[in-house]
Design a protein around this nucleic acid. Structure first.
Lengths: 196, 196
DNA sequence: GTTAGCATGTAAGGAGTTACATGATTTT
DNA sequence: AAAATCATGTAACTCCTTACATGCTAAC
């Protein structure tokens, strides 16, 4: 098994979970719907779809009937759904990295509340580590470095501080919802603010 | 000629411009002094140094005297200085990309005022394009997408808006300095706010 | 009828990381 | 004397982009 990995696979599984789709459309949605708006090229996407088909995560239906624009529609298999559940339940260090965090958040509506909180808090502590490094480096920098570099570092620092505040709000909102310990069955109910 | 390219080469040239250094230290400085705090691994850095040596941009002096910790100190050659001047003078589209912009800004103290302004303005227009895309995608998104994704997209949008405001300040400060058209010889004088 | 957008793919290559391998020196 | 940090390097691998190649269909 090729064991295709990474953010792209995760994104594809999540989007196909909603409805079957062909590659061309998947690419657009990855670029626009997933908060990251990271656009993958076809050179990444199409080979990934092949690998995932080989791995049995998705199934390809070739709609190349004569006279009609050729299309290959992909559908999630049972294995694919399992894999998505597996990925969506991960709340370890890997899920607090920039890109991975973005995709995880994009699928939060389908994520358990406990997992959501752990990811949010993990992300925050990851950023707080970064703040430490940045503040230290800024303290040394103010003596040695020119003021353009300083301006850039300060701006970077403020950006991270802003993200921490944003996370604090998300975490607070998340906690305002019904506490997960009360539930017998793990619930993915979103707190009021996040209902559709 | 291998024509080593990219941000890493630029960063190395800029740092060696100040003073000769060995690889281990270069790596740390790239991570901390350059506003981007992007840390390259040795697996990237050491091969890059070899290529640059082959290209004649830097010169390696091996301090492996017996009993002393082995060190290879790199010094900029005349060609290397030329190359750095070439890179630092570029104000085209490539220099408004995230990473490249960071390095360019890190070396702004050695950049001509005209070039500085063109880079700052180019960066701003690049971000304004991104704002357009984001705002459009956000308008569609609010209908179709769950509110977690929405929160992420809104936060992303605000981050870009903040960077634009930051750039506006830098540009204004830059313009407050003596106008470059008055100068016969291009000057790299920093505006008052940015003097050391 | 031609331009723009839809739709799929491959080959070559760029840029970087991880894991490995080795050894000296300083700090605890 | 052990642990941390200094110091250099390579091989295999991952992930992704660019450029190429092909052809259909809708809109102007």
């Amino acid at each position: 098994m090729a064991r295709s990995s990474g953010v792209l696979e995760f994104a594809v599984l999540g989007l196909l979970h909603d409805s079957p789709m062909h590659g061309y459309e998947l690419r657009k949605r990855i670029g626009s719907e997933l908060g990251t708006f990271r656009a993958y090229s076809y050179g990444s996407l199409y080979p990934a779809l092949k690998t995932m088909t080989k791995d049995g995560l998705i199934e390809a239906d070739d709609f190349s009937g004569v006279g009609r624009r050729s299309k290959i529609v992909y559908t999630l298999t049972a294995d694919g759904k399992d894999r998505f559940q597996e990925l969506i339940s991960q709340s370890g260090p890997a899920s607090w990295e920039d890109e991975a965090f973005g995709v995880h958040l994009a699928f939060f509506a389908r994520t358990n509340k406990d997992v959501r909180l752990r990811i949010l808090e993990g992300r925050r502590s990851r950023l707080e580590e970064r703040l430490d490094t940045l503040r230290t480096s800024l303290r040394n920098a103010s003596a040695r470095v020119d003021n353009y570099t300083l301006a850039l570092q300060e701006h970077g620092l403020e950006s991270v501080e802003r993200e921490v505040r944003w996370l604090n709000e998300l975490i607070a909102t998340e906690r305002d919802g019904s506490p997960s310990s009360r539930r017998t069955k793990a619930s993915s109910d979103a707190p009021a603010k996040f209902e559709k």
